[in-house]
Amino acid sequence: MAAFCVEVADRAGVCYGVERALRMARDAGLAATGRVHTLGPLIHNPIVVQDLAASGVEVADSLDDVESGTVIVRAHGVVPEIVREASDRGLEVLDATCPYVKKVHRAAERLVSEGYRLIIVGEPGHPEVEGILGHAGPGAVVVSDPAELPTMEIGGKVGVVVQTTQTAEALSAVVAALAARTGELRVINTICAATQERQDSAAKLASRVDAMVVVGGKNSGNTRRLAEICRDRCPATFHIEDAAELESSWFAHARVVGLTAGASTPPEHIDRAVEALRSIGEGLEA
């Protein structure tokens, strides 16, 4: 019997948008007669990106790095100008933007067209947020925390959208701060349901285990937020990208170890982590 048992969160790992993007990229790599590039990493998971590159789907930092063939728009989306430019250059464009991200684009465009000053609750500089800004046009601003609002001029009509992988708490905090400062406030909650489900499931599991493992890219915003949520409830929380990073000393006194994974973590990465944890547990028992 192992020294500890391993329990995986009810909701963990790849979401629909990531699964769709991966399927599109892998199919393109198999079918293409020319070179295939993604515009930036397809998803925020370095291991997956390396695997795609090995199968012929390379990463291009910009369109200037692509001379011909197929370009795939990453799951996070891009500004509209990039898609138009790619088409103008004669490149085949596959749009793997997550459908839920596209909903944010449409919501941002609608609010701006109706005369609202747009505020995006999200992580400045994140590719998804940059894409939303591109669809919102000039005048939109990004905030991640209510503390960023006091120095900002806020008009009578304010509209709010939110990065799909943000927490409900982050959105609520900004909205509460805005409510006292606007004549009209319209909020469109664009947090992805899959994100909320993973966060809720991780929080519930982390509240009752001795140690918690979060699997996914260190550059993944939604995975980092999962780690933060788990660490608030279970101080012995460890964020890894690969099962090889696990250390037996982390679990020396654990009886139950929980595991969750970000929305850009494929099932096989979760399986490898579970197998490695069980091996560690058996070693500690011996």
Score class of each variant (00 low, 15 high):
residue 14 V to S: 15
residue 221 G to S: 15
residue 122 G to L: 00
residue 120 I to W: 05
residue 208 R to W: 02
residue 165 T to H: 05
residue 271 D to R: 15
residue 55 S to L: 13
residue 243 A to M: 06
residue 210 D to S: 14
residue 153 E to R: 03
residue 96 A to G: 11
residue 281 G to A: 07
residue 196 Q to A: 15
residue 205 L to D: 05
residue 55 S to C: 13
residue 198 R to S: 12
residue 260 T to C: 15
residue 60 A to I: 05
residue 28 A to G: 06
residue 253 H to F: 13
residue 141 V to R: 14
residue 131 G to T: 03
residue 49 V to M: 02
residue 189 N to P: 11
residue 104 V to C: 12
residue 217 G to R: 03
residue 201 S to A: 15
residue 237 T to R: 01
residue 39 L to W: 12
residue 133 L to D: 10
residue 261 A to M: 00
residue 191 I to W: 04
residue 104 V to H: 11
residue 225 R to F: 08
residue 135 H to F: 14
residue 227 A to V: 03
residue 166 Q to D: 07
residue 57 V to C: 08
residue 257 V to M: 08
residue 76 H to R: 03
residue 165 T to G: 10
residue 236 A to K: 07
residue 181 R to Q: 10
residue 243 A to T: 01
residue 84 R to W: 09
residue 241 E to Q: 07
residue 191 I to K: 01
residue 13 G to K: 01
residue 222 N to F: 06
residue 218 K to S: 14
residue 258 G to R: 01
residue 59 V to L: 05
residue 51 D to H: 14
residue 97 T to Q: 06
residue 4 F to A: 11
residue 148 E to T: 03
residue 22 L to Y: 06
residue 121 V to S: 05
residue 255 R to D: 04
residue 104 V to E: 06
residue 245 E to K: 04
residue 225 R to M: 06
residue 53 A to M: 02
residue 34 G to T: 12
residue 141 V to A: 13
residue 224 R to K: 09
residue 161 V to F: 07
residue 244 A to W: 13
residue 172 S to Q: 05
residue 102 K to S: 10
residue 115 G to H: 01
residue 256 V to W: 14
residue 124 P to C: 07
residue 70 T to N: 04
residue 204 K to S: 14
residue 264 S to I: 02
residue 188 I to E: 08
residue 166 Q to R: 04
residue 210 D to M: 10
residue 80 P to Q: 09
residue 257 V to P: 05
residue 251 F to I: 03
residue 155 G to W: 02
residue 246 L to D: 03
residue 182 T to V: 14
residue 155 G to A: 07
